[in-house]
Amino acid sequence: MAEIAKILVSGPFGSGKTTFIKYVTDEQFSGNDVPTTGELAKFKAMTTVGMDFGILHVDDDLDVHLFGTPGQARFSFMWKIMSKGALGTVFLVDGASERALTEAQTMLKAYQDMPDMKLVVGVSKQDLPDAKSLNDIAEMLDLGNTPMFAVDAREEKDARFLIMALLQEVLAGEEADDLELGDF
């Protein structure tokens, strides 16, 4: 049986998680798409309830499972559960949506507070005239040293770039851990 690595894809409602997982995996199993209800219906006709899931076959002995966390705040209890054993999280946010950025503040903090969680942030819709600048977003989200990139959620190469950036973060973290005085 192949070894399994796990990566999370998170972000507020409508941030492009489903598309992202479609681009970077070989097989995708989307959660149930249901018509959006209430206030959010004006932003998006259908939304994912539950979670997205995709598999990337790396080689004969290794698969990567990508889990898209539910974007709705009422599913926040699942974020921590799903993070268990994950290599890291790709966090997506719509940079032109005040609502999404406000939601992202709370969501991102939840991930930042998880011990040893590696994060990269992808900001979409930077080409729109009312989009906030990356600097403003970094400040608003209190990103500190978390890497952030402007991406086009419709571009497969951008999705792959974000995953690679996350993996580089994981490697950098491992390197930092390699010399301990713990044996004394």
Partner: peptide, 21 residues
């Protein structure tokens, strides 16, 4: 290499050489 590094390196290679999907 430690196991995590090996796993991450293999995934990175997959993206670099073949592309993902």
């Amino acid at each position: 290499e430690n196991k995590k590094v090996s796993v991450v390196s293999r995934i990175l290679n997959r993206f670099k050489t073949k592309g993902a999907a």
